[in-house]
């Protein structure tokens, strides 16, 4: 049967696309883990980052991978400012307010992008855009292979960052025990904003790695936002390794589901797994009980 003969390459595809999901989800899981907020604006931040990468390439000829040095820091600043200036102030200690304010921000960002950059679907053409790596069992597009490796590296880097630096020890303390952290003199709003900024920077990195094999349009964020939530829940909210594994699982599920049920119905697998994890192991695969 045909489906089985291409099972292996499909699996590999699933892993590479899963790495991209993981990249997008890394930022979300950090934000969730520390701030406990569901960030509806995550997709819109990805959209802005993709436009950043696009214009750096279109106007200045900067390669998307070189943009890794520019876009993530820019997104960090944006994320820090948004959290400090808007989201943090709007929360008034209520989850529903954060939900609403991130939703509002998403509407603003998407539509400003529509106004300034029009609804056109934009793509970039890179010298390596059509190159492939032949792995014997499958040919993988170079941008996807790069994204895969980068996802692993970024995940490790984040993990190290969180484990080793003082800043991030404080963030982790904050994630666990908000009031305690406040008592020992940690500047909570600053740390929240730092976490949000780092989360946004992850999105910036994801954008640099994604654009060579994808496109950007004002509503592109919605393409990834739902899947990123799924990955975060699956991996365990706040867990980087979880996001990576979760991304891979979702990628493979989607890929295999698509193979046997067709791409439309194959999406079912993602949500069935998602629901099952929520019901039976709501902390996710690698999450800790809050």
């Amino acid at each position: 049967m045909l489906e089985f003969s291409i099972l292996l390459p499909a699996l590999l595809n699933g892993l590479t696309i899963g790495a991209v999901y993981a990249l997008v989800a890394l930022g979300l899981t950090l934000i969730y883990g520390v701030l406990h907020i569901i960030n509806f604006a995550h997709g819109s931040m990805l959209m802005l980052a993709l436009y950043g990468v696009f214009f750096l390439h279109a106007l200045f000829g900067i390669d998307p991978y070189v943009s890794l040095l520019i876009v993530p820091p820019a997104l960090f600043v944006l994320g820090y400012a948004l959290q400090r200036g808007v989201i943090g102030r709007a929360s008034h200690g209520k989850d529903e307010n954060i939900l609403l304010v991130t939703l509002g921000l998403a509407i603003v960002m998407d539509n400003l992008a529509l106004y300034f950059w029009k609804a056109d679907t934009r793509t970039i053409d890179t010298p390596y855009g059509f190159d492939t790596v032949d792995l014997g069992i499958a040919t993988i597009a170079v941008p996807k292979a790069v994204a895969f490796v980068a996802a692993l590296l970024i995940c490790c880097a984040l993990w190290l960052l969180m484990a080793r630096t003082d800043l991030c020890k404080a963030i982790r303390a904050l994630a666990k025990e908000r009031q305690g952290a406040q008592l020992v003199g940690i500047n909570v709003p600053h740390l929240f904003a730092m976490s949000f900024g780092i989360g946004a920077a992850c999105v910036g990195a994801a954008a640099c790695l994604l654009l060579p094999s994808f496109y950007v349009a004002p509503d592109v964020g919605q393409v990834f936002v739902l899947i990123a939530f799924t990955v975060v829940v699956l991996g365990g909210m706040g867990s980087f390794a979880g996001a990576l594994i979760g991304g891979m699982i979702i990628g493979v599920t989607e890929s295999i589901g698509g193979l046997f049920l067709g791409e439309s119905l194959g999406q079912l697998g993602i949500f069935v797994i998602f629901i099952a994890v929520l019901l039976f192991r709501p902390t996710g695969l690698l999450g800790h009980r809050a």
Partner: peptide, 10 residues
């Protein structure tokens, strides 16, 4: 649809 690799494979 985020990825067409599988469709291409098929």
């Amino acid at each position: 649809t985020r990825d067409f690799d599988n469709i291409a494979l098929k």
